[in-house]
Simulated scan of single mutants.
Amino acid sequence: MQPITAEIVSRTIIKRPADSHKGNYGRVMLIGGNQNFGGAIIMAATAATYSGAGLVTVATDPSNFTSLHARLPEAMVIDYHQTDTLLNMLTEMDVIIIGPGLGTDTIANQLLTAVIAATHAPQRLVIDGSALTLLAQQPRSLPATDIVVTPHQMEWQRLSGIAIKDQTPTANHDAQKRLGVTAVVKAHRTTVYTDERVWFNPGGTPAMATGGMGDTLAGMIGGFVGQFDDFTEAILSAVYLHSAIADDLAATRYVVLPHQISTRIPTYMHRFSQIERPS
Rank of each mutant, 00 (worst) to 15 (best):
T191D: 08
I107L: 15
Y25T: 02
A6C: 04
T119K: 06
P258S: 01
E7F: 06
M269F: 15
D79L: 06
A121I: 01
A47G: 07
Q110A: 03
F224T: 14
H270Q: 14
A47Q: 08
S63Y: 01
G33N: 08
M76P: 10
D230N: 15
T133V: 06
M29K: 04
G226L: 03
E7Q: 13
T191M: 14
A218H: 13
I41L: 10
T210M: 04
A251T: 14
K177F: 05
H69W: 05
L111C: 08
W156M: 14
S262M: 10
Y268P: 08
Q137N: 11
R140A: 10
T168I: 13
T106V: 13
S160D: 07
A218T: 05
Q123R: 02
T106N: 14
D128A: 01
V149W: 02
E92D: 08
L30C: 08
Q274I: 14
F228E: 05
Q167Y: 13
I116F: 00
G101S: 11
M76L: 01
V148W: 04
I42R: 01
T205Y: 05
A171W: 05
Y50F: 09
V28A: 07
A118T: 06
I147Y: 10
D195T: 05
R189P: 05
T133F: 01
N34T: 07
L112P: 12
L241F: 04
V149I: 11
V225D: 10
P266F: 12
D195Y: 06
V77E: 09
I164D: 04
P3K: 05
A6S: 13
K177V: 14
F224E: 03
L102D: 00
F224K: 08
L102C: 01
F228T: 11
M89A: 02
G204Y: 00
G223H: 03
T83L: 15
T104V: 12
Q157F: 02
G39L: 09
S10P: 01
M29A: 15
A44R: 08
V95G: 00
G203H: 14
I42T: 10
D128E: 10
S51V: 10
G39M: 07
S237H: 09
Q153R: 14
V126H: 04
K186Q: 04
G54I: 03
P169T: 13
A114G: 04
A53Q: 01
A251K: 13
L30W: 00
S130I: 01
T232Q: 10
Y80W: 11
R124Q: 12
V181Q: 09
T170K: 11
N24C: 15
G180E: 00
T83Y: 07
T205D: 12
D84W: 05
R158I: 00
S279F: 13
T170M: 09
F272S: 15
I42W: 02
T182M: 03
W199D: 04
G214N: 08
V77Q: 11
R277D: 06
A70T: 15
T46F: 15
L179I: 07
L111F: 03
A207N: 15
Q35P: 06
D61W: 01
D195W: 06
D146C: 03
G54T: 08
E74T: 12
H21K: 10
I164Y: 11
S67H: 05
G23Q: 02
H173L: 02
V126W: 00
T182W: 14
H152V: 03
